[in-house]
Nucleic acid binder design. Structure first.
Lengths: 220, 220
DNA sequence: CGGCTTGGCTTACTAAGTAATCCTAGGGAT
DNA sequence: ATCCCTAGGATTACTTAGTAAGCCAAGCCG
């Protein structure tokens, strides 16, 4: 019998498929689980075979950040800048939260890839055509991105994300003997137990505040 | 002859000295160079001896973040909140830039240590006694910290930091064939060549904007 | 004075990145 | 059709890193 190519003929494994699988692996098991051997296994291939498509692991780490940035919704040219920036910020936050390992790699990447450049260019384009001066467009872009990145960092570093979970975690951290050393944290904790707290609220507050202030300051 | 203790009797190596040396090593050679063996060598000790003071490397990584947070100037109770927050933000930025590896670890640490808790508590205290409601104190703190963290991330990920260096780097990235794909980046680049550009300006702009807006919105 | 504790050392195992080299099937060019 | 080249994958093995297990000396206490 002609040996029919068994089950899946295994598509030829491109650089992009490597990145894609790496993102999935990191999402599923964390960035620490992203090893060349495991990634190879994920693709049905030996670790060393990956080196036919990337020069080293650094390149994979840079590559998956690019993949993530590429997932961020970018505004269409004509859109109202405020709404466009709001949607973009929300999209960026959502994407970076979904791939929570990405934020920690943003600062580490060696070179800025074409996807990241396109991302920045598109934002600047929207602001420019909305009437922002060059300087103010950079200001607005930089400030908004700083805010989003920092928000994601804080969300991720927080052991909790809503007042529900806070109960247990806050207890173990705060009521653990030294509660009197952090009076204001205790106050916050108690307050959070009553009212509905979540990091979403913080994001909305900051985003509204920044957009509003930019509208007043930077549209000259 | 009585064997006189040769040269330096080597102070007894505490948990704190381990962290301190780890910070120095990471500052000097990067976080990647922070290995147990090298850290041991730095302290005149074998790698395994470190495990008498820390349970594993994770603990060191968490510990050095705490050391860094502890370096951030924290406001005295009575100070004017706006000035206090400005100084704190500037200090945080300076410290995190000086230890540029720290920002990438903020999100990864397992537990929030006492230094970090004290840091947060002190900020909240200042805002509360300046008249902020609980909710608004959290808003202000969260927003300012987001901004600072994001600023540091962007600074660090940028291959350059002032218009001086931009020339060479921007050239290699932008003029590299595909310049027409990023018209607005090119525009920015050209503009930056003429005027004096630096990330310091972005930081000042954002900080002023946020403080001003907080003053108007959150002091109720 | 003898055992215990504390802190450092030695050895050795496992996992990970990757260099070097080999193997094989498919695809042209002759 | 044949031959050879090459692209893409496999094998092997070396190096570095984290860390488990157990050894040993020095001081301290009873």
């Amino acid at each position: 019998m002609t040996p029919v190519k068994d089950s899946s003929p295994r598509p030829p494994l491109t650089r992009e498929r490597v990145f894609q699988a790496a993102v999935e692996l990191a999402d599923r098991d964390g960035l620490g689980a992203l090893t060349m051997r495991r990634l190879g296994a994920e693709l049905g291939v030996e670790a060393m075979s990956l080196y036919k498509h990337v020069t080293n692991k650094e390149e994979i780490l840079d590559g998956i950040v690019e993949v993530v940035i590429g997932e961020i919704e970018t505004p269409r040219e004509g859109a109202d800048w405020k709404e466009a920036m709001r949607l973009r910020a929300m999209s960026a936050r959502e994407v970076l939260s979904r791939h929570s390992w990405a934020i920690g790699r943003l600062e580490a990447r060696g070179s800025t890839g074409p996807v990241a450049l396109r991302y920045v260019d598109s934002i600047l384009g929207n602001l420019r055509s909305a009437g922002f001066s060059i300087e103010n467009a950079v200001h607005a872009f930089w400030l908004l991105d700083s805010f989003v990145y920092g928000q994601v960092i804080q969300e991720t570093s927080l052991p909790i994300s809503s007042s529900k979970e806070m109960t247990e975690s806050a207890r173990s951290t705060l009521e653990q003997g030294a509660a009197d050393d952090y009076p204001h944290l205790v106050e916050i904790g108690q307050h959070a137990l009553k009212s509905e707290y979540s990091v979403d609220k913080e994001f909305e507050f900051g985003l509204d505040l920044i957009l509003e202030a930019l509208d007043q300051n930077a549209m000259s």
